[in-house]
Amino acid sequence: MKTPEKIDAREIRHKLGLNQQQFWSKLGVTQSGGSRYESGRNMPRPVQQLLRLVHVEQIDIAKVRKEDFEVVEFLKASNPDLFKDLKKQARAYRKAA
């Protein structure tokens, strides 16, 4: 079984220049809860994944909808070549912006 990578929330927060309130509120975590995670308390896997999506991948989770995932999964399954091509184009578009 794959062991989850250790996420250093404090380091990520410092690199982003955010205080605890700003950083943790984007994940729906209280400042005090985030402080405990930064002090070494075990961070639940869902919180780790949200942290990665929001602060590392820079995804605005307020804009993510279930329908979007359904379309992506359908496209992956029904036309994987088109999915790969669109993914490549999206990365290029993001880099150019």
Rank of each mutant, 00 (worst) to 15 (best):
A77Q: 05
A9L: 00
V47P: 02
E5R: 02
K87T: 11
S35P: 03
K2D: 02
R52C: 07
Q58V: 09
K84H: 13
G40Y: 13
I59A: 05
Q20K: 00
L50V: 01
E57Y: 12
R65E: 07
K2W: 05
D8I: 00
E5P: 01
R36G: 03
G40D: 13
V54T: 12
A92V: 14
K76L: 13
Q89K: 15
Q31C: 13
V72H: 02
K88Y: 13
N79L: 00
K84D: 15
A96R: 08
I59V: 15
G34Y: 10
E5Y: 01
V64T: 09
D60C: 04
A62S: 04
K95T: 14
A97P: 09
A62V: 01
I59M: 10
G40M: 05
G34V: 11
H14Q: 15
F74A: 00
Y93V: 04
R41F: 04
R65N: 09
N79T: 04
K76F: 12
R41A: 02
L27M: 15
V72Y: 06
G33M: 14
G33L: 15
Q21R: 13
A96E: 14
V64N: 09
P46V: 09
R91V: 07
S35V: 00
N19Q: 07
S78Y: 12
E73F: 03
K66H: 04
L86C: 10
A90Q: 13
W24M: 12
K87Y: 14
K2L: 10
A96P: 10
Q22M: 12
K63M: 09
S78E: 15
S78W: 12
K6R: 08
S35M: 03
Q48F: 01
G28A: 12
L51T: 14
L16Q: 14
L27C: 10
K63T: 12
G34E: 12
L50R: 01
I12V: 12
H14K: 11
R36V: 00
V56Q: 05
D68E: 07
R94F: 12
N79S: 02
D60S: 02
L50S: 09
V71I: 06
I7H: 04
K2S: 13
N19W: 09
E73G: 08
K87N: 07
Q20T: 02
Y37R: 04
G34R: 15
Q48E: 05
T30Y: 05
L27F: 08
L82A: 06
F69L: 06
R10L: 15
K15L: 09
I61C: 10
F69K: 00
P44Y: 01
Q22F: 08
L53S: 08
K66E: 07
E73Q: 13
Y93C: 06
R94S: 10
V29Q: 10
S32L: 14
L86M: 13
R13P: 05
K15S: 07
K87D: 02
L50T: 00
M1Q: 11
K95L: 13
F23D: 02
V29D: 02
